[in-house]
Amino acid sequence: MGIVSPGFQGRPRRGDTRLPPGQYLTEGFPVLSAGPTPRIPTDRWEFVITTETGQEYRWSWADLMALPSETPTVDIHCVTKWSKLGTIWQGVSLDTLFTEVDSAADFALVHSYGGYTTNLPLEDLLDGQAWIAYRYEGEALAPEHGGPARLLVPHLYFWKSAKWVRGIQLLLTDEPGFWETAGYHNYGDPWREQRYQGD
């Protein structure tokens, strides 16, 4: 037996290895909001990808529902330090939405109904990393959680997963969003604890 027993400090509890630094587990689903909750009827909802040349790609709610969906099970991490493991969503992969989009942009600025924005590199939205999610745990996504549809980018802090998403603007140069212009980190990797500017 070695000097340091593997059990000396106790085994990690189940889930600990999935918890980024500084985070705590929650079983609830806290509601964070920087303004009034938008109520967007699905018959008036639309999602628009706008390229750096101004070309627009539009989807109505019916268009979105007609696309193949996925049911990712993902861990989510809020910059206010709660994490929730194994959340089950349904939505359309952004890979599907970007299939026909012709762009040379490297950056994305996500826009929401209500005026919220958040920015991230375009590559973080592709390759199976992001969805337009419209169901949560088998139910239609509630307005307070961003329904009828929100962006889901679970590998970044959850403020990047914009509620009430209405579109993505593709940009050649990065443009910081709502929290990114108010002290929060431009990228927001929870595993590197990139909470604030300078982290």
Binding site: L32, A182, Y184, Y196
Partner: peptide
């Protein structure tokens, strides 16, 4: 609105954001 990553103060007339305050451990914005 304080149930958010920072404080967001909005106009009671039009809902526009008037003031935002983020408090990090070593700085405030």
């Amino acid at each position: 609105y304080r149930h958010a990553p920072g404080l967001v103060a909005r106009c009671p007339g039009c809902d526009a954001v008037v003031l935002r305050l983020t408090r990090a451990p070593h700085a405030a914005w």
